[in-house]
Design a protein around this nucleic acid. Structure first.
Lengths: 193, 193
DNA sequence: ATTTTCTTAGAACTAAATGGTCGATTGTTC
DNA sequence: GAACAATCGACCATTTAGTTCTAAGAAAAT
């Protein structure tokens, strides 16, 4: 082909679908290869291992999320609304990602520290983003916070706590409404007046 | 427990969810057992093999479908409307079942003639049902058919032809509308006047 | 035309996973 | 305490799946 990097992207895009459907463990190299009409061993010309593909997929997903979030941040001037939209999008992503993680949390996190590293990277980005949203809220007088850095950390921690219900119960149907309720409770003390 | 048969049902219900999510091949006995907080070998006290569980699951699913279809048949007096609803429900089910079959059609139908047997049983029931719907349509003057048995066979064959698109393209979003269009074309010659 | 580099895939290897068996164990009923 | 119901851990045989290796077909360069 013209470009090796281009084909790597093609693999990532294709593998992403399979991973998100079946999770890391249940997805086989053969399936990834077949989806591209390639031989199983051919994939190794582009990626060193299954884990490397997975890593690239997660990276890609994080990028997509980042783009979506950027859009949300620019979508309004009301920080509370932004925060709500932010949480919704975040939860939507984690619903999608729940497969990835399900397959891994499923015990044997043995040598899966590479996931942790990935996670840390993502956490840092997220905290920065939340902090920015909070900071804008403070600046415009909507929020009432001393230390946005610490507050961002707190909010992010709380959001992480919300992930588990999403993982274990699949698609509870009142989820959207319930999410709103939780956000209400969670940020009650933040909104001025 | 009180009843062995009761527990078999419990297993079927639980396994059904896993099978429908991951398909036959990707579902492991250990997962089925874990979902019930049981040891893997305990399951073999109730079922002889993985295939036997799967068979029971499919049987159960067929029963659910049958019930739903019965409800549809009683839901209206307009046979054309009934037929439309029938097709919709049928497609909904097959979307759900596509995992089951995907995992099996995926080559090696080797000694999976037991699926074929299952399929035949289901086909017969379906043909009978369709025939009944057609017969009611004829009786009320909505349909114009010489031989409802043959017509039912034809309709069922056509419906089977519609399954494949559902298997290979996941959730095409225009599906509902497209389905309507197909039904229109398919039954055009049936409706009187 | 020939050499070299890029790309692919079948075969082979290896470690892990998985369906299934069996005997032991625990609990319950008579 | 014998007989039966239910569960489970250890174990086995086979298959699967990730990875490596090598040869070979295309394509590009010389």
């Amino acid at each position: 082909m013209v470009d090796k990097e281009k084909y790597r992207e093609k693999i990532v895009l294709s593998a992403s679908k399979i991973f998100s459907r079946y999770g890391f463990k249940k997805t086989t190299m053969e399936e990834i290869a077949n989806a591209l009409n390639k031989g199983k061993s051919s994939i190794y010309y582009y990626f060193k291992s299954k884990e490397e593909i997975f890593e690239a997929v997660v990276d890609h997903e994080a990028q997509v999320l980042k783009d979506e979030l950027s859009k949300v941040i620019k979508s309004s001037d009301d920080p509370e609304l932004i925060l709500r939209r932010y949480v919704k999008i975040r939860m939507k992503l984690f619903e999608k990602l729940s497969n990835y993680y399900n397959a891994i949390f499923n015990r044997d996190l043995d040598h899966f520290d590479f996931i942790e590293k990935q996670r840390e990277k993502y956490d840092l980005m997220e905290i920065a983003l939340i902090r920015y949203v909070l900071w804008r809220g403070v600046r415009s007088g909507h929020f009432n916070l001393e230390n946005t850095g610490l507050a961002a950390l707190a909010v992010q921690t709380a959001l992480k706590g919300l992930e588990l219900p999403l993982f274990w119960e699949k698609r509870s149907y009142g989820m959207d409404a319930r999410l709103d309720a939780i956000i209400d409770i969670l940020f009650y003390g933040i909104v001025r007046k």
